[in-house]
């Protein structure tokens, strides 16, 4: 049986095993997104990149081993490449976690966290289902425009988000968020006024204000 060495750990596997499966056997974590073993192995996301010691890159999910081979799965350049690949994918994703039923069970969100990609809103971690969103009850929650990472502590604790983790800066997400605010009857000025409390001295607040300005039909920003 071929011996596979991944990040220095050696495992014996059946011929034809993918590097991803071998890595799992060796206890080495490789991020992945598109693969569903046995169902889809088309390697489209390229989040699972690994390399040989010589620097050749492969997607771990569909590279199969038939002889003794060695791979690197953990290195700063690999993480950077995976992150960039993922960011490109995320750029096409319509982020609207506040409307999404999956919430915490979303693999995009968990991968974003794993790869350190910012731009996902607090709503992705919110314990309330979309039907119980505080905004629907007239409570101005800043979760839609605030960076996730706190497990939506305040909402979980019976309050609303005040934005302490800082603003989302992706304009399309902000645009959809402000659209949602106005659909639910919150005027842009009150959102900005609340956001000011934590964000007033941040450069990134400028992006929020300019999107807000456009949302309210000019004026601000």
């Amino acid at each position: 049986m071929p011996k596979v060495k991944i990040d220095g750990r050696v495992v014996e596997v059946e011929p034809g095993t993918t590097v991803l499966a071998a890595a799992e056997k060796a206890g080495v974590r490789i991020p992945r997104l598109c693969v569903v073993p046995g169902l889809y192995e088309g390697s489209s996301c390229r989040v699972c990149l690994v390399k040989t010691p010589a620097g050749r890159l492969f997607p771990a999910c569909n590279y199969r081993v038939y002889r003794d081979e060695e791979f690197v799965a953990t290195s700063p350049d690999l993480w950077e490449m995976r992150r960039v690949n993922f960011e490109l994918l995320l750029a096409f994703h319509r982020i609207e976690c506040w409307q999404c039923e999956r919430k915490g069970a979303c693999s995009l969100v968990s991968l974003a966290k794993e790869l350190g990609v910012e731009g996902i809103p607090v709503c992705s971690e919110c314990p309330l289902p979309p039907s119980e969103c505080l905004l629907r009850r007239g409570i101005l929650c800043l979760g839609m425009i605030t960076l996730a990472g706190c497990e939506a502590e305040c909402v979980a604790g019976g309050g609303e988000c005040w934005g302490c983790r800082g603003p989302i800066t992706r304009a399309d997400v902000l645009e959809r968020a402000f659209k949602r605010y106005s659909e639910l009857g919150f005027d842009v000025t009150s959102v900005v006024s609340k956001a000011e409390i934590f964000w007033n001295s941040l450069d990134s607040f400028g992006v929020v204000k300019s999107v807000a300005g456009r949302a309210s039909g000019g004026g601000r920003g």
Binding site: E153, C154, V155, A156, G157, G158, G159, E160
Partner: peptide
């Protein structure tokens, strides 16, 4: 109260 510091549930 949700949390000890800056208890989010109070308003």
């Amino acid at each position: 109260c949700g949390r000890f510091i800056h208890m989010p549930s109070l308003g």
